[in-house]
Amino acid sequence: MELRRQRIPVPPGTTVILYATAPVMAVVGTARVAEVHVAEPDDVWSSFHAHTALTREEFDQYMAGASQACALLLTDVEQLPTPVPLAHLRSSQPFHPPQSYRYLASSVLRQLVDGHPMASRILRQTEATPS
């Protein structure tokens, strides 16, 4: 489950690239969006808290002031055995990890991961069609 303070307009079946912020600062895996739920934060907590790694206090702190919450149910989650560090992502072009999310063209993703041992795995995941 991925939680956001804003609605994320992503259709089910979309592949997501999972980037971990500091101190990791690397692409750490991939997943596929199964469902998108948008509701008031209390409703999202009631429905999905068992699928998060957050306490109620952490959830409330993250959602403070938000009028809606977006819950993305992720499937086909795969952790990369070797993360792709930010330094590698920046080696081919300027790259700044997004604060929330960012759509990437396959050609841009290919340039960002090119030369890394996990490049073919990431690209295969993003090109796969949902079953």
Rank of each mutant, 00 (worst) to 15 (best):
M1N: 02
L3D: 04
R4C: 02
R4T: 00
R4I: 01
R5C: 10
R5M: 06
Q6R: 15
R7P: 14
P9E: 13
V10I: 14
P11E: 11
P11Q: 13
T14D: 03
T15N: 09
I17N: 03
L18T: 10
L18A: 10
Y19P: 03
A20K: 05
A20Q: 10
A20R: 13
T21P: 07
T21I: 07
A22N: 12
A22W: 09
V24F: 05
M25Q: 14
A26S: 04
A26F: 03
T30C: 12
T30G: 09
R32F: 01
R32V: 02
R32S: 02
V33D: 13
E35D: 12
E35K: 00
V36L: 02
H37V: 01
H37E: 02
V38I: 04
A39K: 03
E40F: 06
D42S: 05
D43H: 08
D43G: 06
V44N: 05
V44C: 06
W45R: 04
W45T: 08
W45M: 07
H49A: 03
H51Y: 14
H51I: 04
T52D: 01
A53I: 12
A53W: 13
T55R: 00
T55E: 00
R56L: 11
E57I: 10
D60E: 12
Q61I: 10
M63S: 00
A64C: 11
G65C: 04
G65A: 02
A66I: 00
A66S: 13
S67I: 07
Q68M: 11
Q68G: 03
A69R: 09
A69S: 11
A69W: 05
C70D: 00
C70S: 00
A71P: 09
A71V: 04
A71E: 02
L73C: 05
L73R: 08
T75N: 12
T75R: 12
T75W: 07
D76V: 01
V77P: 02
V77G: 05
E78C: 13
Q79N: 10
Q79E: 14
L80E: 10
T82E: 15
P83K: 11
P85K: 08
P85G: 05
R90L: 03
S91Q: 09
S91R: 09
S92R: 14
S92D: 11
S92L: 08
F95N: 12
F95K: 02
H96I: 14
P97D: 11
P98I: 08
P98H: 10
S100I: 00
S100P: 02
Y101C: 09
R102F: 13
Y103P: 00
Y103G: 05
A105H: 15
A105I: 08
A105T: 14
S106R: 15
S106W: 14
S106K: 15
S107Y: 06
V108T: 15
V108F: 12
R110T: 15
Q111P: 02
L112S: 04
L112F: 05
L112R: 04
V113D: 06
D114T: 00
D114E: 06
G115T: 03
G115H: 01
H116C: 11
H116M: 11
S120W: 15
R121T: 09
L123Q: 09
L123T: 08
L123F: 12
L123V: 10
Q125M: 11
T126S: 14
A128Y: 07
P130Q: 15
